[in-house]
């Protein structure tokens, strides 16, 4: 139960909105739920629905609309490379291709050790610092800008080590 596990956070989130507009808290609570395992579990989903007095169908519907919410497990880190027009004009596609080659995955795939899922995403508002990607994990989101494949591989290695 989220409210039991993160009482402070839940309280803070709910306090942001007028009491009769609890539903506004659905997105922050989904982020909180993803802290556990990187995706929203069935239990968390019901939990959020009950807390906000909406149906679980409505909560699922929110997960389905927004790309940063997930209802399925993926790699521990989601490496989301921007390949949108401005970044692509500065070599993002090539970067992604080489990165995938080095990691031995296809776009959308997860490395064998379950550490990294590589995804191509739309503009991340860092167009002047391509190639770039964001790293989404249970702890949040982090930008990595002006990247090269080598530096990215170093980062992946560091992530792998930090797990050990």
């Amino acid at each position: 139960m989220l409210a039991e596990k993160y009482p402070q956070e839940v309280k803070k989130i709910l306090a942001k909105y007028p009491p009769e507009q609890k539903r506004s808290a659905v997105m922050p609570l989904l982020y909180l739920a993803q802290r556990e395992s990187g995706y929203v579990t069935k239990e968390a989903l019901k939990d959020i629905a009950a807390m906000l007095e909406i149906t679980s169908t409505e909560v699922v519907s929110i997960i389905g609309f927004y790309t940063l919410f997930h209802d399925e497990k993926a790699g521990k880190y989601r490496m989301q490379v921007c390949t949108d027009l401005p970044c692509a004009l500065r070599g993002a596609d090539k970067f992604l291709e080489e990165l995938c080659g080095n990691l031995g995955v296809k776009v959308g795939g997860t490395t064998a050790d379950g550490m990294v899922t590589v995804e191509a995403v739309m503009c991340l508002a860092a167009c002047d610092k391509a190639p770039m990607f964001q790293l989404q994990s249970a702890d949040g989101i982090e930008y990595h800008e002006n990247m090269t494949v080598d530096r990215t591989m170093e980062l992946v290695e560091a992530l792998r080590k930090s797990k050990a």
């Binding site: 997105m27 922050p28 927004y66 790309t67 940063l68």
Partner: peptide, 8 residues
């Protein structure tokens, strides 16, 4: 603050 979640 209120965070969106990936939708232009």
């Amino acid at each position: 603050t209120h965070l969106g979640a990936g939708a232009y």
